[in-house]
Design a protein around this nucleic acid. Structure first.
Lengths: 361, 361
DNA sequence: CTCTGGCACTCAAACTCGCTGAGTGCCAAG
DNA sequence: CTTGGCACTCAGCGAGTTTGAGTGCCAGAG
């Protein structure tokens, strides 16, 4: 139990008093702006509450007991903790939905960059990541969707040695994926051609995700009634989908921006962070958690559970194709970032990317 | 004209005396080992020359006049300059050709990693780059060859909208390249199929580079005698080769190692370096100069002409396919690197990669 | 002419000291 | 509950000191 002498600053359910919230808000805003511990005098001046520094000191002591703020050392001002940021972001921050002129600008920039890469979703991810990083001056991040989407265009099978077959699948206008299939027997080139023809006539123009699903269903339901050729063709297509695309898992851009922040000027910390980016595993795991939740997600500092992200926050939003969430994008920056600006940017960018990926346009 | 009072320490043609060379050698070795300015006393002890510190100081003054060494400040020892390193690697360094056990180890590691990626040269580059970085504890670097190589396997043309065609070229076992061709008129799927058939029957199994050359020749020589179909097919194939592969230009690995070096602990310098890696342009230009020269090439510090590489050295070696130099690989590290070790490693790795890429095995 | 010991000198790095100013905690009075 | 007052703390800064490694130069020995 906190030994604060001002228990009544919080209402009974553990919430903070309005006054305390207002002060926390001002403190966080100040700290985000200047990056320096905020003292009671400053708060007294800037909070608009007309309280003396002494009173504010009392309230700050309470906030400290609650773990919302802390002092770097005895005679410094207060700095928000992860928990303080959390409250700030959840309850105190008024995210204004981004000036429509700015939205237009983002959209314009994105479309301009995307123009030459139309139809190649890998490039779209890269471009979007760069845009995010450029506009926020932090690191941009876009996951490559695990689920395939887009219109089935064409498939081609080429025999390799040892029962192996190279499958080439063209999706959309210009997206080409290739896998190696390990089969249980060798097929002649003519047979493979037949399979490809069969699949192409059936599936061309349909959404790849749907194709995948209907393959599963069709195989189970009508296996007996199929002739050998159809059956083999479908088995191959199935295997093609099973082998996950070998590509990378997310596209990162503008990592170098992170080097400009004072709180990351520790080279060792920086190194660990960059190594985590390269290893990808942890970051990916974190991002996975964000695909599920609709809307903007925020991880603040230690909240993420990964030690390297100590002094970083991650702001993400999922993007969708055909109403289905398929990936996330976002930014990574110092905990001390301008959430107010970053949140709507990430939000809008996710929507713009969704729009760009959406087949009907 | 240097005002040294010991002109005779150099022989008439401007070379250094043996003694001075020996001292420079010891100095560079020391400095590479410890990273700290080397004083006259240390040299007197370690050079094996049986000279007093005072004498050595005189010689050092000469070396300083010649721009081989410099003092960080008055009362510090001497540190090699780029020119000093240059003389060291060119004349003083005895590169022993790497223990055959170590070669075997390298080869073993490389082959083990490459096994699952056989036939996909992009992956081979990535793997090689990682290996270089891992074994040298610096940044590894492999350029993607500009010239294509490998056996033509299969080509496929798919019509897109607006006279555009998606060309898919399969090389070797599993390497798939695709380009978009902008043509002067639309072709039907059947026509495109004919073109592809024609090209495949003619070229399958042949080296892509040779195909490219013979396309140029054939088109000029026999254009008149060809029927329209052949002519169109060849024009398309030509265009396919013209459009450079869209991929990246080099594969970098282990940049993070560079953060561990004291001379790069300046965050700002580090940022500039990493930005140069991302922009690629300058680095690529530097690497281009290395493809021509056979054998190991070394750029030391400012020699490269790029300001960001100030305190870095780049050690490269070209690799080849079919006796032809097609790309370079190498490492980037601090000027103060163990050249003696790095040079043979880069050399051998280039040979190993060449072997792995060589079609006849 | 070459080498060497000696000597004066320089300078970065490490440490101390004291000061200042921003800020705190606590208390007693309004 | 709020406030002014007071004692206290502590990082940061600048100035001063010491230390040690190392230099340059000189004069004498070989």
């Amino acid at each position: 139990m906190p030994r604060s002498r001002h228990e009544n600053l919080r209402s009974t359910d553990g919430q903070l008093s309005d006054r305390a919230q207002q002060l926390l808000k001002t403190l966080v805003e100040r700290y985000i702006r200047d990056g320096e511990p905020v003292g009671s005098r400053t708060l007294s001046r800037d909070s608009g509450l007309d309280l003396s520094p002494a009173t504010i000191r009392n309230i700050m002591a309470d906030l400290e007991d609650l773990g919302m703020v802390r002092s770097p050392h005895t005679s410094a001002g207060r700095v928000p903790t992860a928990r303080g940021y959390r409250l700030f972001v959840d309850a105190l921050l008024a995210v204004k939905p981004l000036d429509s002129r700015e939205v237009a600008r983002l959209q314009h920039d994105l479309l301009r960059e995307m123009e030459p890469a139309r139809g190649d979703s890998q490039s779209l991810m890269t471009i979007t990541s760069s845009l995010l990083s450029g506009v926020t001056q932090m690191a941009g991040l876009v996951t490559i969707p695990k689920r395939e989407f887009g219109a089935w265009r064409h498939v081609e099978f080429l025999p390799l040695s040892d029962n192996r077959v190279l499958a080439i699948l063209v999706i959309n206008e210009r997206e080409v994926q290739n896998r190696i299939l390990e089969l249980d027997r060798a097929w002649t080139q003519a047979e493979l051609q037949q399979f490809a023809n069969y699949l192409n006539t059936h599936f061309t123009g349909r959404d790849v995700g749907q194709v995948r699903e209907s393959l599963l269903k069709e195989l189970r339901n009508t296996r007996e009634s199929m002739n050998e050729m159809m059956s083999a063709a479908i088995t191959m297509a199935e295997q093609m989908f099973e082998r996950a695309p070998p590509g990378k898992d997310y596209v990162l851009a503008g990592e170098t921006h992170l080097m400009e922040f004072a709180e990351l000027s520790n080279v060792d910390k920086l190194r660990q962070l960059f190594e985590a980016f390269n290893k990808k595993r942890d970051i990916l795991h974190l991002l996975d958690q964000c695909v599920a939740a609709d809307g903007v997600q925020i991880f603040i500092g230690e909240e993420s559970g990964y030690q390297v992200l100590d002094e970083c926050s991650v702001v993400t939003a999922p993007y969708r194709v055909n109403e289905e969430l398929v990936g996330v994008l976002g930014v990574i920056g110092p905990t001390r970032m301008a959430y107010e600006r970053v949140i709507p940017i990430v939000d809008v960018t996710a929507k713009l990317l969704s729009a760009a990926l959406n087949p009907r346009k």
